[in-house]
Amino acid sequence: MAPAVQLGDDLNVSPLGFGGMALTPVYGEVDPADALRTLHHAVDAGVSFFDTADVYGGGSNEELIGRLLRERRGEVQLATKFGLVGSPAGGYTDVRNDAAYIRQAVDRSLRRLGTDVIDLYYMHRRNLHVPIVETVEAMAELVQQGKVRHLGLSEVTAQELEEASAVHPIAAVQSEWSIWSRDVERNVVPAAAALGVGFVPYSPLGRGFLTGTVDAASLGDNDFRRNIPRFAPDAAAANQAVVAAVRAVADELGATPAQVALAWLLVQGRRLGLPVVPIPGTRKRDRIDENLGALALDLSPAQLDALGRASDAVVGSRSADPTWVSQGRE
Protein backbone atom coordinates (compact mmCIF):
# COMPACT_ATOMS: atom_id res chain seq x y z
CA MET A 1 0.00 0.00 0.00
CA ALA A 2 1.22 3.49 -0.83
CA PRO A 3 1.88 5.96 2.00
CA ALA A 4 -1.01 7.66 3.77
CA VAL A 5 -2.51 10.80 2.24
CA GLN A 6 -3.10 13.92 4.29
CA LEU A 7 -6.46 15.53 3.62
CA GLY A 8 -7.23 18.92 5.18
CA ASP A 9 -6.94 19.64 8.90
CA ASP A 10 -4.14 17.05 9.32
CA LEU A 11 -6.40 14.04 8.67
CA ASN A 12 -4.27 11.13 7.40
CA VAL A 13 -6.00 8.31 5.51
CA SER A 14 -5.16 5.46 3.14
CA PRO A 15 -4.73 6.58 -0.52
CA LEU A 16 -7.92 4.73 -1.46
CA GLY A 17 -10.93 4.47 0.79
CA PHE A 18 -13.99 2.23 0.82
CA GLY A 19 -17.51 3.50 0.10
CA GLY A 20 -19.95 1.67 2.32
CA MET A 21 -23.16 2.43 0.41
CA ALA A 22 -22.45 -0.53 -1.91
CA LEU A 23 -23.06 -2.80 1.09
CA THR A 24 -26.68 -1.72 1.40
CA PRO A 25 -29.60 -2.80 -0.81
CA VAL A 26 -29.34 0.12 -3.26
CA TYR A 27 -27.99 -2.18 -6.01
CA GLY A 28 -29.93 -5.29 -4.91
CA GLU A 29 -29.96 -7.43 -1.78
CA VAL A 30 -26.91 -7.90 0.45
CA ASP A 31 -25.75 -10.76 2.69
CA PRO A 32 -24.62 -9.06 5.95
CA ALA A 33 -22.14 -11.81 6.85
CA ASP A 34 -20.51 -11.61 3.43
CA ALA A 35 -20.49 -7.82 3.63
CA LEU A 36 -18.57 -7.99 6.92
CA ARG A 37 -16.03 -10.33 5.35
CA THR A 38 -15.58 -7.78 2.55
CA LEU A 39 -14.88 -5.02 5.10
CA HIS A 40 -12.32 -7.16 6.92
CA HIS A 41 -10.63 -7.97 3.61
CA ALA A 42 -10.35 -4.26 2.84
CA VAL A 43 -8.53 -3.63 6.13
CA ASP A 44 -6.28 -6.65 5.52
CA ALA A 45 -5.41 -5.20 2.09
CA GLY A 46 -4.39 -1.86 3.58
CA VAL A 47 -7.54 0.24 3.28
CA SER A 48 -8.06 2.26 6.45
CA PHE A 49 -10.56 4.93 5.35
CA PHE A 50 -14.19 3.79 5.52
CA ASP A 51 -17.15 5.93 4.49
CA THR A 52 -20.76 5.44 5.52
CA ALA A 53 -23.83 7.56 6.35
CA ASP A 54 -26.69 7.40 8.81
CA VAL A 55 -29.18 7.11 5.95
CA TYR A 56 -27.60 4.08 4.22
CA GLY A 57 -29.86 1.13 4.88
CA GLY A 58 -31.79 3.14 7.46
CA GLY A 59 -28.79 2.96 9.79
CA SER A 60 -27.93 -0.67 9.05
CA ASN A 61 -24.75 0.31 7.18
CA GLU A 62 -23.41 2.13 10.24
CA GLU A 63 -24.29 -0.93 12.34
CA LEU A 64 -22.43 -3.16 9.87
CA ILE A 65 -19.32 -0.99 10.04
CA GLY A 66 -19.73 -0.92 13.79
CA ARG A 67 -19.22 -4.69 13.74
CA LEU A 68 -15.91 -4.12 11.96
CA LEU A 69 -14.92 -1.46 14.48
CA ARG A 70 -15.43 -3.81 17.42
CA GLU A 71 -12.38 -5.72 16.30
CA ARG A 72 -10.39 -3.16 14.31
CA ARG A 73 -11.17 0.37 15.49
CA GLY A 74 -7.49 1.26 15.76
CA GLU A 75 -6.94 0.42 12.08
CA VAL A 76 -9.80 2.53 10.72
CA GLN A 77 -10.41 6.21 9.96
CA LEU A 78 -14.17 6.42 10.05
CA ALA A 79 -16.33 8.86 8.08
CA THR A 80 -20.09 9.15 8.35
CA LYS A 81 -22.70 11.76 7.46
CA PHE A 82 -25.89 13.43 8.65
CA GLY A 83 -28.60 15.47 7.00
CA LEU A 84 -30.72 13.21 4.78
CA VAL A 85 -34.06 11.78 5.83
CA GLY A 86 -35.33 8.82 3.79
CA SER A 87 -33.25 6.34 1.81
CA PRO A 88 -31.17 6.16 -1.40
CA ALA A 89 -33.43 3.45 -2.82
CA GLY A 90 -36.81 4.75 -1.68
CA GLY A 91 -36.13 8.46 -2.01
CA TYR A 92 -35.33 11.24 0.44
CA THR A 93 -38.11 13.09 2.25
CA ASP A 94 -36.19 15.89 3.94
CA VAL A 95 -32.78 17.52 4.43
CA ARG A 96 -31.93 18.61 7.97
CA ASN A 97 -28.98 20.92 8.69
CA ASP A 98 -30.24 22.57 11.88
CA ALA A 99 -28.27 22.41 15.12
CA ALA A 100 -30.87 20.46 17.08
CA TYR A 101 -30.99 17.75 14.45
CA ILE A 102 -27.19 17.55 14.22
CA ARG A 103 -26.88 16.96 17.96
CA GLN A 104 -29.41 14.12 17.75
CA ALA A 105 -27.92 12.64 14.57
CA VAL A 106 -24.37 12.37 15.89
CA ASP A 107 -25.47 10.54 19.02
CA ARG A 108 -27.52 8.08 16.97
CA SER A 109 -24.55 7.44 14.67
CA LEU A 110 -22.13 6.96 17.57
CA ARG A 111 -24.53 4.43 19.11
CA ARG A 112 -24.96 2.45 15.88
CA LEU A 113 -21.23 2.51 15.15
CA GLY A 114 -20.35 1.48 18.71
CA THR A 115 -17.60 4.08 19.01
CA ASP A 116 -17.08 7.20 21.07
CA VAL A 117 -15.68 9.38 18.29
CA ILE A 118 -16.18 9.86 14.54
CA ASP A 119 -12.99 10.71 12.66
CA LEU A 120 -14.70 12.67 9.86
CA TYR A 121 -18.28 13.93 10.08
CA TYR A 122 -19.90 15.22 6.90
CA MET A 123 -22.91 17.35 6.17
CA HIS A 124 -24.46 15.03 3.56
CA ARG A 125 -26.49 17.60 1.60
CA ARG A 126 -27.40 21.27 1.91
CA ASN A 127 -30.69 22.59 3.17
CA LEU A 128 -30.70 25.95 1.43
CA HIS A 129 -32.94 27.47 4.12
CA VAL A 130 -30.32 26.97 6.85
CA PRO A 131 -27.23 29.20 6.57
CA ILE A 132 -24.18 26.98 6.19
CA VAL A 133 -22.41 29.05 8.83
CA GLU A 134 -24.99 27.92 11.40
CA THR A 135 -24.60 24.30 10.35
CA VAL A 136 -20.81 24.37 10.63
CA GLU A 137 -20.99 26.16 13.98
CA ALA A 138 -23.11 23.27 15.28
CA MET A 139 -20.69 20.73 13.78
CA ALA A 140 -17.74 22.55 15.37
CA GLU A 141 -19.38 22.12 18.79
CA LEU A 142 -19.14 18.35 18.27
CA VAL A 143 -15.38 18.69 17.80
CA GLN A 144 -15.14 20.67 21.02
CA GLN A 145 -17.15 17.96 22.80
CA GLY A 146 -14.82 15.22 21.53
CA LYS A 147 -17.52 13.40 19.56
CA VAL A 148 -15.97 14.28 16.18
CA ARG A 149 -12.36 14.85 15.12
CA HIS A 150 -12.71 16.49 11.69
CA LEU A 151 -15.46 18.11 9.62
CA GLY A 152 -16.46 17.48 6.02
CA LEU A 153 -19.04 18.73 3.53
CA SER A 154 -20.69 16.89 0.67
CA GLU A 155 -21.80 18.41 -2.64
CA VAL A 156 -21.16 22.02 -1.65
CA THR A 157 -20.37 24.87 -4.01
CA ALA A 158 -17.13 26.83 -3.88
CA GLN A 159 -18.86 29.72 -2.12
CA GLU A 160 -20.42 27.40 0.46
CA LEU A 161 -17.02 25.82 1.11
CA GLU A 162 -15.42 29.23 1.58
CA GLU A 163 -18.12 30.32 4.04
CA ALA A 164 -17.81 27.07 5.98
CA SER A 165 -14.01 27.23 6.13
CA ALA A 166 -14.21 30.66 7.74
CA VAL A 167 -16.00 29.04 10.71
CA HIS A 168 -13.92 25.89 11.22
CA PRO A 169 -11.24 23.96 9.26
CA ILE A 170 -12.80 21.60 6.73
CA ALA A 171 -10.87 18.37 6.18
CA ALA A 172 -12.62 17.19 3.03
CA VAL A 173 -15.25 17.82 0.41
CA GLN A 174 -17.02 14.71 -0.80
CA SER A 175 -18.71 15.04 -4.17
CA GLU A 176 -19.12 12.92 -7.27
CA TRP A 177 -16.00 13.17 -9.43
CA SER A 178 -14.81 10.83 -12.15
CA ILE A 179 -13.95 10.74 -15.84
CA TRP A 180 -17.64 11.19 -16.61
CA SER A 181 -18.47 13.67 -13.80
CA ARG A 182 -16.05 16.59 -14.00
CA ASP A 183 -18.24 19.60 -13.20
CA VAL A 184 -16.56 20.02 -9.78
CA GLU A 185 -13.31 20.90 -11.53
CA ARG A 186 -14.71 24.30 -12.56
CA ASN A 187 -15.14 25.88 -9.13
CA VAL A 188 -15.23 23.47 -6.18
CA VAL A 189 -11.87 21.78 -6.75
CA PRO A 190 -9.95 25.07 -7.19
CA ALA A 191 -11.58 26.44 -4.02
CA ALA A 192 -10.65 23.31 -2.08
CA ALA A 193 -7.07 23.52 -3.34
CA ALA A 194 -6.80 27.17 -2.31
CA LEU A 195 -8.22 26.47 1.16
CA GLY A 196 -6.12 23.37 1.85
CA VAL A 197 -9.14 21.07 1.81
CA GLY A 198 -8.86 17.48 0.59
CA PHE A 199 -11.26 15.93 -1.92
CA VAL A 200 -12.98 12.56 -1.52
CA PRO A 201 -14.63 11.59 -4.82
CA TYR A 202 -17.64 9.33 -4.45
CA SER A 203 -18.76 7.13 -7.35
CA PRO A 204 -15.24 7.34 -8.86
CA LEU A 205 -16.18 4.47 -11.17
CA GLY A 206 -19.30 6.23 -12.43
CA ARG A 207 -21.59 4.07 -10.26
CA GLY A 208 -20.01 1.09 -11.99
CA PHE A 209 -20.62 2.34 -15.52
CA LEU A 210 -16.95 3.09 -16.26
CA THR A 211 -15.99 -0.52 -15.58
CA GLY A 212 -17.97 -1.64 -18.63
CA THR A 213 -19.89 -4.20 -16.58
CA VAL A 214 -23.17 -2.29 -16.18
CA ASP A 215 -26.04 -2.81 -18.62
CA ALA A 216 -28.28 0.17 -17.96
CA ALA A 217 -31.20 -1.52 -19.73
CA SER A 218 -31.25 -4.43 -17.28
CA LEU A 219 -31.03 -2.58 -13.96
CA GLY A 220 -33.38 -4.00 -11.33
CA ASP A 221 -36.53 -2.21 -10.23
CA ASN A 222 -34.97 -1.28 -6.87
CA ASP A 223 -31.71 -0.04 -8.42
CA PHE A 224 -31.65 3.72 -7.84
CA ARG A 225 -29.50 4.29 -10.94
CA ARG A 226 -32.71 3.95 -12.95
CA ASN A 227 -33.53 7.50 -11.77
CA ILE A 228 -30.28 9.07 -12.99
CA PRO A 229 -30.61 10.74 -16.43
CA ARG A 230 -27.30 9.48 -17.81
CA PHE A 231 -28.44 5.89 -17.22
CA ALA A 232 -31.55 6.40 -19.38
CA PRO A 233 -31.44 4.18 -22.50
CA ASP A 234 -30.42 6.80 -25.08
CA ALA A 235 -27.88 8.49 -22.80
CA ALA A 236 -26.41 5.19 -21.65
CA ALA A 237 -25.95 4.12 -25.26
CA ALA A 238 -24.16 7.37 -26.10
CA ASN A 239 -22.02 7.11 -22.98
CA GLN A 240 -20.58 3.79 -24.10
CA ALA A 241 -18.02 5.95 -25.92
CA VAL A 242 -16.37 6.94 -22.64
CA VAL A 243 -16.37 3.31 -21.55
CA ALA A 244 -14.65 2.38 -24.81
CA ALA A 245 -11.97 5.04 -24.22
CA VAL A 246 -11.30 3.78 -20.69
CA ARG A 247 -11.12 0.19 -21.93
CA ALA A 248 -8.71 1.13 -24.72
CA VAL A 249 -6.29 2.70 -22.23
CA ALA A 250 -6.68 -0.29 -19.93
CA ASP A 251 -5.78 -2.63 -22.78
CA GLU A 252 -2.66 -0.59 -23.56
CA LEU A 253 -1.52 -0.85 -19.94
CA GLY A 254 -2.56 -4.41 -19.24
CA ALA A 255 -4.86 -3.01 -16.56
CA THR A 256 -8.61 -3.00 -15.91
CA PRO A 257 -11.04 -0.16 -16.66
CA ALA A 258 -11.59 0.37 -12.92
CA GLN A 259 -7.86 0.79 -12.35
CA VAL A 260 -7.64 3.33 -15.18
CA ALA A 261 -10.60 5.34 -13.88
CA LEU A 262 -9.13 5.50 -10.38
CA ALA A 263 -5.62 6.29 -11.62
CA TRP A 264 -7.05 9.14 -13.70
CA LEU A 265 -8.54 10.71 -10.55
CA LEU A 266 -5.26 10.46 -8.70
CA VAL A 267 -3.50 12.20 -11.60
CA GLN A 268 -6.15 14.92 -11.65
CA GLY A 269 -5.54 15.57 -7.98
CA ARG A 270 -1.84 16.07 -8.61
CA ARG A 271 -2.49 18.25 -11.64
CA LEU A 272 -4.98 20.43 -9.79
CA GLY A 273 -2.98 20.71 -6.58
CA LEU A 274 -4.97 18.96 -3.88
CA PRO A 275 -5.04 15.59 -2.11
CA VAL A 276 -7.62 13.23 -3.67
CA VAL A 277 -8.76 10.00 -2.02
CA PRO A 278 -11.43 8.13 -4.04
CA ILE A 279 -13.81 5.82 -2.16
CA PRO A 280 -14.90 3.08 -4.56
CA GLY A 281 -17.41 0.67 -3.08
CA THR A 282 -17.84 -2.99 -3.91
CA ARG A 283 -19.36 -6.18 -2.57
CA LYS A 284 -16.60 -8.37 -3.96
CA ARG A 285 -13.31 -8.87 -2.19
CA ASP A 286 -11.31 -9.34 -5.38
CA ARG A 287 -12.49 -5.93 -6.58
CA ILE A 288 -10.80 -4.32 -3.57
CA ASP A 289 -7.49 -5.84 -4.64
CA GLU A 290 -8.12 -4.79 -8.23
CA ASN A 291 -8.88 -1.20 -7.20
CA LEU A 292 -5.70 -0.96 -5.15
CA GLY A 293 -3.75 -1.82 -8.30
CA ALA A 294 -4.60 1.69 -9.55
CA LEU A 295 -2.04 3.11 -7.13
CA ALA A 296 0.80 1.68 -9.22
CA LEU A 297 -0.58 2.69 -12.62
CA ASP A 298 1.07 5.40 -14.72
CA LEU A 299 -0.99 7.16 -17.40
CA SER A 300 0.87 8.80 -20.29
CA PRO A 301 0.03 12.31 -21.53
CA ALA A 302 -1.51 10.80 -24.67
CA GLN A 303 -3.70 8.50 -22.61
CA LEU A 304 -4.79 11.37 -20.39
CA ASP A 305 -5.69 13.40 -23.48
CA ALA A 306 -7.76 10.53 -24.88
CA LEU A 307 -9.66 10.14 -21.61
CA GLY A 308 -10.23 13.89 -21.41
CA ARG A 309 -11.73 14.00 -24.91
CA ALA A 310 -14.05 11.12 -24.06
CA SER A 311 -15.20 12.80 -20.87
CA ASP A 312 -16.22 15.90 -22.81
CA ALA A 313 -18.78 13.85 -24.77
CA VAL A 314 -20.72 12.44 -21.79
CA VAL A 315 -24.51 12.78 -22.14
CA GLY A 316 -27.05 13.33 -19.34
CA SER A 317 -27.01 14.88 -15.88
CA ARG A 318 -25.43 13.04 -12.95
CA SER A 319 -28.48 13.80 -10.79
CA ALA A 320 -32.22 13.69 -11.38
CA ASP A 321 -32.40 17.04 -9.54
CA PRO A 322 -29.45 19.28 -10.47
CA THR A 323 -29.86 21.42 -7.32
CA TRP A 324 -29.31 18.26 -5.26
CA VAL A 325 -25.62 18.47 -6.15
CA SER A 326 -23.21 21.40 -6.41
CA GLN A 327 -23.48 21.48 -10.20
CA GLY A 328 -27.03 22.82 -10.08
CA ARG A 329 -26.28 25.60 -7.56
CA GLU A 330 -23.15 27.15 -9.01
Rank of each mutant, 00 (worst) to 15 (best):
R103V: 01
R103K: 06
Q104C: 01
Q104A: 03
Q104V: 05
A105M: 05
A105S: 10
V106R: 03
V106N: 06
V106A: 01
D107N: 12
D107P: 05
D107G: 06
S109I: 03
S109T: 06
L110D: 06
R111M: 11
R111G: 09
R112D: 04
R112T: 09
L113G: 11
L113N: 06
L113T: 11
G114R: 07
G114E: 07
G114Q: 11
T115I: 00
T115Q: 05
T115K: 07
T115M: 05
D116M: 00
D116C: 04
D116Y: 00
V117K: 14
I118F: 03
D119F: 04
D119N: 08
L120P: 02
L120W: 03
L120S: 01
Y121Q: 05
Y121V: 07
Y121W: 08
Y121F: 12
Y122N: 12
Y122C: 14
Y122E: 14
M123V: 08
M123W: 05
H124A: 09
H124C: 08
H124E: 05
R125L: 15
R125Y: 15
R125V: 14
R126T: 13
R126E: 14
N127K: 02
N127Y: 04
N127A: 10
N127W: 00
L128D: 11
L128S: 12
L128Y: 02
L128P: 02
L128H: 05
H129T: 11
H129W: 02
V130K: 04
V130D: 07
I132C: 07
I132P: 04
I132N: 10
I132R: 09
I132W: 09
V133C: 00
V133A: 10
E134F: 12
E134G: 15
E134S: 14
E134H: 15
E134M: 13
T135Y: 00
V136C: 01
V136Y: 07
V136D: 05
E137P: 01
E137H: 03
E137T: 09
E137A: 10
A138V: 08
A138L: 04
A138Q: 01
M139Y: 03
L142V: 06
L142M: 08
L142N: 11
L142W: 00
V143K: 15
V143N: 08
Q144S: 13
Q145C: 03
Q145H: 10
Q145N: 07
G146D: 13
G146W: 11
G146L: 14
G146Q: 12
G146K: 12
G146T: 12
K147Y: 00
V148A: 04
V148Y: 01
V148F: 02
R149Q: 14
H150G: 08
